[in-house]
Write a protein that binds this DNA or RNA. Structure first.
Lengths: 203, 203, 203, 203
DNA sequence: TATGAATGAGGGTTCATTCAT
DNA sequence: AATGAATGAACCCTCATTCAT
């Protein structure tokens, strides 16, 4: 089952979805105009409202696309026996992998949600907090298992880990770098993880 | 010379500046209304235009306040002989110290600029790139001096370092945590730096 | 010949008609949406256009249903030899009787047409004027026959008579009162007529 | 204190108020467009929103103008010792007098409120019910004092009285009749009252 | 300096109507 | 007959900016 199957019941819906993705990435949530999206999708203005209740609904659909996949991953980590590094690797892979196929989706998440408190409805904050606490759990588990240092709060490790990961991606966005090969994705994931685990220090 | 002196030629100007800071933090750049800012400042909205050319000008002034201080620090690092860790510490201190005194300013920078490509005018992108390359230089220097690992591109180290730092702060913003004591600032700075340098791994 | 037969050539047509009646009563002419009507009728909204040219046509059909019956009555009064009170009684009975069977139809007539100049197309005004002049004729006849006072213009008597009648009904609508028994209708008709003829004064 | 003083704090407000009155009379509440009102008032679109929060607020202001005066009258009747006929006369005079000076205001009340259940918000229904019960009280008092017949419910008398009055006026509106002389107002009032009290019957 | 009235270009949303299937 | 996707003209409301006082 592809990711698209989750939301795109019709071809037009997918068309609008992708157009919205592009426009929001360019202009941000608030600046994205419905008319821009319609034009980008090559359809009439009113048709957007045929498929989505309103702007908010369209945006929520987009975000849920991201959150859905992410929570699937996080859920999978809960009962998994793999070690911390591998678990964090799964998270990195979700970010990078999704960026590989849906660059705009990841960009929107990072720039419009992960940071901007402006767009944080209570509903969104709740999801965000869930991401944090799930990652915390991985960190705590790592500390208990003796793999992660105990002198730093798990929440702080979460901040640093996710921050490194997200900024990495958003910086790539700025210079419009795309991940065209799967090997690239793997190497980047390793770099991020390795620096997080072993530090930037040499030796 | 105080930071205020750089821009606040008059008391009213400072009043507007601070009001804008607060409103932009709450609502974001685009959502911040001039009338909100005027109301917050306790003046008529016509007067804002007496002191600032327009919305853009007001926002640019605010951002320059941040950039000015940051570039002062980065400039100071160029010819300094201190080691890498200390140099990065200076950057961390600028972020945290400014957050201590001007929480909104740092928040705005991180949420509205550092990530959001939406607000990136060419002018702003230039400044952003300068921050990147200056930090790159520190990393490169660290690699040459044998202090930083050489198997990761300096630019990548920059991403990870700044990302960890910025997300740390923006996450604190979300939970509305403030840094009331200088000792807190120091400890946080150490934690961030230590994890960046030595990694999250125990032992 | 039933009233329905006048317009409802098909079952679907009747379905739409009744749905429109209900929706218009609830929301008024302009606020009634074609989609509401279709949904109420349980059909697709495209089909409404198969049976009625457009919104205006549908509404006109509804109003003609009312006017048709009313003019039948009024026509019957022209050459009738019955006295004034009985003639006015026939009018009252048409209003109350139709309200009994088609509450919405009467409501719509009173609220959307009888009063509101908003919805008055020249066509409708013409019909309205016809009602007035026909009632005038009854009043004039009553004056000539010595049954009605001559010191008040027939037109004024018409205003007062129809006004009392219509407000009576529209007020009942407000409190959602329905006429479930024929005896009720008769009593109400008597009350209205009696007050109109003999006045509210005691004795 | 003039009626205008109650609402029109500024000249522009009055300008908008009068323009709205005219447009609403012509098109009805829902069909009245803010742009029409602005154009009619000879001002820019946005200025309407400077003086009135929104369409609803503007319309409410207009209706309160009517209700305010009417309730003043009704309140005055409560403790008054004058007889029923005179009390009802006061009500008639308020309607006709206001129509004399503000034809649109009365028209709007009758066509858009008194009848149309479409526009009846709970707030408005409350006011409407107050009018009814206050008039009921006058009728009841008349019955107790032996002046009005007791075989008809007070509420029914209210319906007939107000209905006659309102239809009288709305019919005048239809034929665009205006009351230019005060003497006309008095004579009409007498006619309505006399028919209501003594009936249409001759002798 | 200071005020807030005034302007008008947008942008979100609704809904009657058409039309391909 | 029947469906509902598709269109686009309206219409409400916001808000940056200007300007007379």
């Amino acid at each position: 089952m592809t990711k698209e199957a989750k939301f795109a019941r019709t071809k037009k819906e997918k068309l609008i979805f992708d157009a919205a993705l592009k426009i929001i990435k360019e202009k941000g949530f608030h600046q994205a105009r419905m008319s821009d999206i319609a034009k980008e999708a090559g359809i009439s203005y009113g048709l957007v409202y045929h498929y989505f209740k309103n702007k908010e609904d369209l945006f929520e659909t987009i975000l849920n696309q991201w959150w859905g996949g992410l929570f699937d991953i996080l859920e999978g980590l809960r009962n998994s026996r793999t070690d911390v590094r591998e678990k964090l690797g799964k998270i990195v892979q979700y970010y990078l992998g999704t960026y590989h196929r849906y660059p705009e989706l990841v960009t929107i998440f990072i720039t419009e949600i992960s940071r901007s408190s402006t767009n944080l409805t209570p509903e969104r904050l709740k999801k965000f907090m869930k991401l944090m606490s799930r990652t915390d759990a991985v960190m705590t588990e790592g500390q208990k298992g003796g793999l992660l240092r105990k002198d730093v709060k798990p929440r702080y490790l979460t901040y640093i880990f996710l921050g490194a990961l997200e900024t990495f991606i958003s910086a790539m966005v700025l210079v419009d770098q795309s991940l065209t090969k799967d090997s690239q994705v793997g190497r980047l994931a390793d770099a991020i993880l390795d620096v997080f685990m072993n530090g930037a220090k040499s030796g």
